Computed example of a mutant assay.
Amino acid sequence: MAHSEDKTENVASVMKVFAVLESLVEDRHLTLADIATKAMTSKATAHRLLNTMISLGYVQRDEETDRYGLTLQLFSLGARSIQGRSDLLWAADRVMSKLSRMTGESINLGILDNVDEKVVYVHKYDSHYNLSMKSTLGKRNPLHSTSLGKALLAWRDPKDIEERISRMDFEVTAPNTITSRTVLLSDLAATRARGYAEEIEESEAGVRCMAVPIFDHLGRPVAAMSIAFPLFRFDEAKQPEIAQTIRDLGLEASLSLGYSPDLGRP
């Protein structure tokens, strides 16, 4: 019984540490009281955790304002964690830059997080327009409601797709969010047949997105690239041209990673 209680306390402590970190990510400079409130813990506990993080180099305190903020240590950890994906980022950046220059719209790169079945935004080009979809690096979105997520799912093994869908809760975030396993499977089949994924107000109201997978040398979908339009700026007459362009650029990125058309064209 004591062992179980110790384990529960350890889990609670870890959760408090991340709550403190997340509060500092959301607001760069906070007082002790602010952090305790956001992390839903006592000031004494927050103070103890902050002192430990300061000693480890993750947090710093401004002695003049008595406010706390993150150092670049977390950024360093994140940068090291994606070093193994440097080839992917290099290959994707080249085509994302082209697509950005050609369209002026928001371009995003996402990868699949196998832990919580979500797409994580790891690279982006912001729109040239004031009115546009804004994404944040590190943002996580559901697979079922995003073009990036569908592009990452559609070219996987059917059994893998079924298993991932079985773990989805089909959270509704926009007017047209898919809420059915059957509808999603049908959408993924259509996605694979036409070579790109699409969503119209499924993730965010007023936004239309198209995405393509990026394959590695083994033909595995290791990332997806999307373009996002506000509905009012999307020209339906140009849809075939945009679709072909994004497919061609996705293939170009895949070829840079050693993908062979013999494995099946994306």
Rank of each mutant, 00 (worst) to 15 (best):
L56P: 00
G57R: 00
V59S: 02
E63D: 13
E63Y: 05
T65H: 13
D66H: 07
G69K: 06
G69R: 08
L70T: 03
L70P: 00
L72A: 14
L72R: 15
L72Q: 15
Q73D: 06
Q73M: 11
L74G: 03
L74T: 05
F75A: 15
L77G: 05
A79N: 14
R80L: 11
R80G: 11
I82D: 11
I82G: 09
I82C: 10
I82K: 14
Q83D: 13
G84K: 11
G84L: 06
S86Y: 10
L89A: 06
A91T: 02
D93F: 01
V95P: 04
V95S: 07
M96R: 09
S97K: 07
S97H: 10
S97F: 09
S97R: 07
S97D: 13
L99P: 00
L99D: 05
S100H: 14
S100E: 13
S100M: 00
S100A: 13
R101L: 13
M102R: 15
T103F: 11
E105R: 12
E105I: 05
E105W: 10
E105N: 09
S106N: 11
I107T: 04
I107W: 06
N108F: 03
N108C: 13
L109D: 05
L109E: 02
G110S: 12
G110D: 05
D113F: 05
D113V: 08
N114H: 10
D116T: 08
E117Y: 13
K118P: 04
K118F: 02
V119H: 03
V119E: 03
D126Y: 14
D126R: 15
D126H: 14
D126C: 12
S127V: 10
H128A: 12
H128T: 13
Y129L: 15
N130V: 11
N130S: 14
S132Q: 12
K134T: 13
K134L: 10
G138V: 01
G138P: 06
K139G: 15
K139N: 15
R140L: 01
R140T: 09
R140H: 09
R140Q: 12
P142F: 03
L143Y: 03
H144I: 06
S145Q: 07
S145P: 00
T146C: 05
T146D: 06
T146V: 05
S147A: 15
L148K: 02
L148Y: 01
G149M: 11
G149V: 09
L152N: 00
L152I: 01
L152K: 03
L153W: 04
A154T: 04
A154E: 03
R156T: 06
D157H: 12
P158V: 04
I161S: 01
E162Y: 05
E163F: 12
R164D: 06
R164F: 03
S166W: 01
S166H: 09
R167F: 00
R167W: 02
M168E: 11
M168Q: 11
D169S: 12
D169H: 10
F170T: 02
F170M: 03
F170K: 06
V172N: 07
T173W: 01
P175T: 02
P175R: 01
N176L: 08
T177W: 00
T177N: 02
I178W: 02
T179V: 12
T179L: 04
T179C: 08
S180E: 10
S180K: 14
R181P: 02
R181F: 08
R181M: 08
R181C: 07
T182A: 15
V183W: 06
L184I: 09
L185W: 07
L188C: 07
A190Q: 14
R192I: 06
